[in-house]
Design a protein around this nucleic acid. Sequence first.
DNA 1: CGACCTCACTAATTCGTATAAGTTGACGAG
DNA 2: CTCGTCAACTTATACGAATTAGTGAGGTCG
Lengths: 287, 287
Amino acid sequence: MRDVARASGVSQATVSFVLNDTANQTIPEATREKVRRAAAELGYVPNSIARALREGASRIVVLEVGGLPPGRSLDAFIAGMDAELAAAGHGLLVSYGSAATAIDAVSPRAVIDLPAINATPDGSMHGMAAHARVQIGHLAARGHRSIAVAVPEEGGLVFDATAGHVRAAATALDLPEPATLLVGAAETTAERLRALLGEGTTAVAGLDDDLAISVLAALIDLGLRAPDDLAVIGFGDTAQGALWRPRLTTVRIDAHMYGRRTARQVLGLSTADVKPAPAEVVGRDSA
Amino acid sequence: MRDVARASGVSQATVSFVLNDTANQTIPEATREKVRRAAAELGYVPNSIARALREGASRIVVLEVGGLPPGRSLDAFIAGMDAELAAAGHGLLVSYGSAATAIDAVSPRAVIDLPAINATPDGSMHGMAAHARVQIGHLAARGHRSIAVAVPEEGGLVFDATAGHVRAAATALDLPEPATLLVGAAETTAERLRALLGEGTTAVAGLDDDLAISVLAALIDLGLRAPDDLAVIGFGDTAQGALWRPRLTTVRIDAHMYGRRTARQVLGLSTADVKPAPAEVVGRDSA
DNA sequence: CGACCTCACTAATTCGTATAAGTTGACGAG
DNA sequence: CTCGTCAACTTATACGAATTAGTGAGGTCG
């Protein structure tokens, strides 16, 4: 910046004013032009660390994904956030694992703890509660009343919370409390599924597509088939689901828009014109 | 830091010396103790942005994953890097999408362009070339000579490079140049596969498990079965592969170690004692 | 004609750290 | 008694921007 100032014959402060279009600063267009030209010629690039030191935060936002299931939805969410943030001159960085170190190393403008948000009582930010209602609603509409929810054996908070949404959805639809199907090793899962079937369960909702697919596999191991012996519905619309036979019925959410909305939210921008499409059942063969 | 200095009755510089164990600095233990105590009491936490400004780079490293296929290998690689970096006081942040913005916003200690590294002529850093030899070698050992490689229709550089390794492996084993199977929509893929089978192809190697699974699905659509009508082998050992029927034969790599090694490399530490296990075929039913 | 205002800037300070370059007092050697 | 050395610090500066508080020239108003 000092070089630019020297080259254009003004002070460093003036350069800052011009390049940042600082308000309440009366600088004639001629000078502005001179400064901009010099900056361009010298290939001036602001040092974002210095800027961050001055402003108290860097222009990036960190997304913590925790144990969130990977897949198309997460990718789309990330892409959406990234696009919106980029438009505002910010960058998106994703942290797996040791977030704390990373976070204080970059002083992000904001950090988004995605699992925590989804775990919110009403999952408000991303409408998780509403999504769950769509998923369970599909099953209920097909006459299922005795529904189980497939949860990973080594769950973690993320899944606990999501399972909560599914349970709430069942209650809201006047269905009995859903049973839980712990998904683990192939044989154990199959055994548990057999037990559940014996108790009259007619449908299973997976917290994500991978879990639903595991259930489908277990079903095959038992020599049974979906949707006749058991209806299975997933969540998230991963590529895998469409490949399976029977093809997996699942729920698609507008993750890209949710990503964009989240980005605008943390930047303090209006979210009025970014409306995610409602969750939608991708009706295929398994339910 | 100034507060700590005031509280312990020394200068800010001394505090810095003590807290960083600066070499060539003679400070009696008594003083050191005083400073440390004050720091602890005041809950002093160094401002990493200021430190980054001073040192020219922050203590984080950015990993660019580009269009790399997600899955267990990538997760393990990330976990490995993260662990090793954390031990050295650094954080790991992953960039999808607009890496440039993010990178200059944080001035990372290093940035790792994973696809680019894997694309290296010999894929040296992560032994991609050797891995490909293991994959093709398995097929060759079972007597297959006419092998095709499954590549995504919308490939990108990552896959081009990986495909190169597979081709090189075939050549090294004195096999004819492998054909290419473009994987796209279900029907098209099945058609292409039918054509390939007509030309005598007896085995397909997928650049990752997802691609191999798509081939398995296409095979089912054609009313055929693996491994009798076509041997199929994947790469990366994702959870999905084990669920499929026939269960997918694949290649497992020691991604965690590769991650750790990469981390130590970029930090300039010795990599002598971190030796990734060689790639290994997970022999299941499909090949 | 002097007070006051606006324009077009500049000088100086701040953010929090790391470190090079002193400074002071005690002690030993000659 | 003096000089040099060393321990134990302190002072001052730099990193690169943003921003606050001026400052001088020129014009307006009463």
